[in-house]
Design a protein around this nucleic acid. Sequence first.
DNA 1: ACCCAGGCATTGG
DNA 2: CCAATGCATGGG
Length: 272
Amino acid sequence: MLVPLPQPYDFALSTARFHVYGRDAANVWHEGGLHRVVDGREVRIEEAVGGVEVTPHDATIESVVLTLLGASFDLEGFAAWAAREDPVLARLVPALAGFRPPLQPDPFEALVTSITAQQVSLQSACAIRSRFVERLGVRGERAHAFPERDRVARASETELVALGFSTRKAEYVLGLARSDLDLDGLASLPDEEVQERIVALRGLGEWTADWFLARHLARPHAWPAGDLGLRKAVTAFYGDVADARAFSARFHPFENLSAHYLLTGLRVLPPV
DNA sequence: ACCCAGGCATTGG
DNA sequence: CCAATGCATGGG
């Protein structure tokens, strides 16, 4: 069934992050479509006129797919703002027309994914995370469900280390899974309180909290200032910047979309 | 055999 | 408050 998305929508560009860093057992690319377990069922998402074709389909799946594909982002407002306010994005936004940053629909998945990506290359992170997903996630036809929090809570440190986690990261993941933090409840809190609660957990720092706000909660003002990739993109497009966090003021009120467009812009459209 | 890659906690000044 | 250090894998 067709799930409509605001047009234009560039499916290939928007979903590239699910396969350019290596095999990802939770987001499997197969014959031009993305396979992922949603609400316990494996779903195939593929390009279609006016949106994406989703099979199987029901109301819950549609809602998760819309979240996954970032349907809520105000791209029109962003494009109009960029054309007026920022010469770099005025070039990037039309050149990347139809790019809609995908989101992480589940908070536990978002945080564990960030832990795996701390400090190491995205390729290393993807390889390790994929083994984790295959080991602890319920298998679908082609994709595995991302492991459930309570299943991870029952795993052992040794088990995670055997998958390639450092001892520290194994502790962080288990600590998160076993913590009493209400992850779904974070969605109802303002940015600063979400930050505080995430950073209070061992192994989850400012960078992880920023990406949680950006990629899970889709908060417009999220700006992962500490991110190495984003810092490289900012330098490439704007030159050296003294304070990466303060520089985000320039992108207000579209900090999150700006960060995503700068990162994707650096990947596919090097600066002039 | 190195070195770097989308951090973080710990330790010492 | 800031600097130095260890972490463990994948790719160059």
